[in-house]
Amino acid sequence: MTNITLEQVAPDFLEKEKIAHSEIWNKTVSIKKGERLQIVAPSGSGKSSFIHFLYGMRKDYHGNILFDGKPVKNFTPEDTANNRSNHLSIIFQDLRLFPEQTAHENIEIKRLLQPYHQQSKVNEMANALGVSSKLKQLGKTCSYGEQQRIAIIRSLQQPFDFLLLDEPFSHLDENNRKKAMALIEEEATSRGAAIILADLKPIEYFNSERTLHL
């Protein structure tokens, strides 16, 4: 997948005033593979909704989202599953780990689906983000910061063309944010993939080429 296009997309539920001031809603926006795009918006302006629309989790919007010219709304559940395992990866704001599985199992269940890295790479990444000692711990017993880093590592285990980040560092300190961002950029670059990062404020250590206000 090389291109995502938004044609006059706007959430069904958002106030008209917010839509009118947006650089994305009700506009035509094109995002190319390899691009670094930063989306900045305050709470309640639809950042998570935007990421979920792109990931095919919600359809409560009007307008069209096109993947290489094909409307996302027309995709079958199988098409969506194929996109999620080969072309799109995501870090959710609410993390979404299996609470009853260990951190390692949470990563493996994603890695086994479409392995991009060897298992040893998981340990390497865990070391880099300082969670290697947490890999055998159940998801529910890890702190939010640890869970966030596990979720980041999990998102980097598959092939992807676009990486969607929804407030990915909300539970991390400055030092861990930088480390995580560096790892994400390195992984995206190795795949020639785009990063679409949505956050409350601009992130200085993200080498974005474009910033859009939602």
């Binding site: 559940p77 199988e78 599953a81 979404r96």
Partner: peptide, 15 residues
């Protein structure tokens, strides 16, 4: 919840 998360991660419903 588990099945929903598997689908969200990209597991195909057919598979």
């Amino acid at each position: 919840d588990n099945l929903q998360l598997l689908l969200t991660l990209g597991y195909s419903p057919g598979w």
